[in-house]
Design a protein around this nucleic acid. Structure first.
Lengths: 108, 108
DNA sequence: GCAAATTAATGATTTATTCAAG
DNA sequence: CTTGAATAAATCATTAATTTGC
């Protein structure tokens, strides 16, 4: 894992320059931006977002950049995992129309 | 419980149910399947489960589909009641207004 | 004990997302 | 950029538990 685990109890997470993590409000705003269509912001957008979010806590452009990159990747991973899970029993994509058929019977 | 104790004894399961509800045995089997890893069954699985469970009472594929959807969602709800950030009481309103500004400026 | 009234569970619908065809 | 496929989240609606007064 990380290096400073043992030794005397220096709290790596508390005050010094550990890795950035968003404050709750920053996270809320980032998620909202993502939802509204900002998936891969340009560097201009990144700087703008960072400077406005700086009001809620320390943040840099690269943090914003990484956040969007990671968030997009993880959303994709999540969906991939679900789809694989779903089709695990059958192999192909042939069973992908599943629930629609099932539901259609009583859907009028 | 289920059957009426005395003279009002209409069999609840037999005739006049608008919406399905699982018999105890059906519920046990569904829960066991879920516990064993069937979270979002494919349509094939759904049909198999339904026809096996039909032995214990009236049931359709869509009932199975809905049951897994609801069960998964509600299990998740009960396991995820942390991180209520929404409004941090005093700071909440002020920060919310500001985040709206941020979103507006970045929207287009 | 038993139903009417009320509350808690949960089945069924609708809505808002996601990724990735086309 | 638009749209298809497929949810999962949010919501609606009805059933079962329970509370309550008699």
């Amino acid at each position: 894992m990380y290096e400073g685990t043992s030794n005397t109890g220096f709290n790596v997470q508390s005050q010094k320059c550990t890795r950035w993590s968003p404050t709750p409000v920053q996270l809320l705003v980032l998620e909202e931006l993502y939802r509204q269509g900002t998936k891969t912001p340009s560097s201009e957008q990144i700087q703008q977002i960072a400077s406005q979010l700086r009001r809620f806590g320390k943040i840099e452009g690269k943090n914003v950049f990484y956040w969007f990159q990671n968030h997009k990747a993880r959303e994709r991973q999540k969906r991939c995992r679900l789809e694989i899970e779903e089709t695990a029993s059958t192999e192909g994509k042939k069973e992908h129309k599943l629930s629609c058929d099932i539901l259609k019977s009583n859907r009028e």
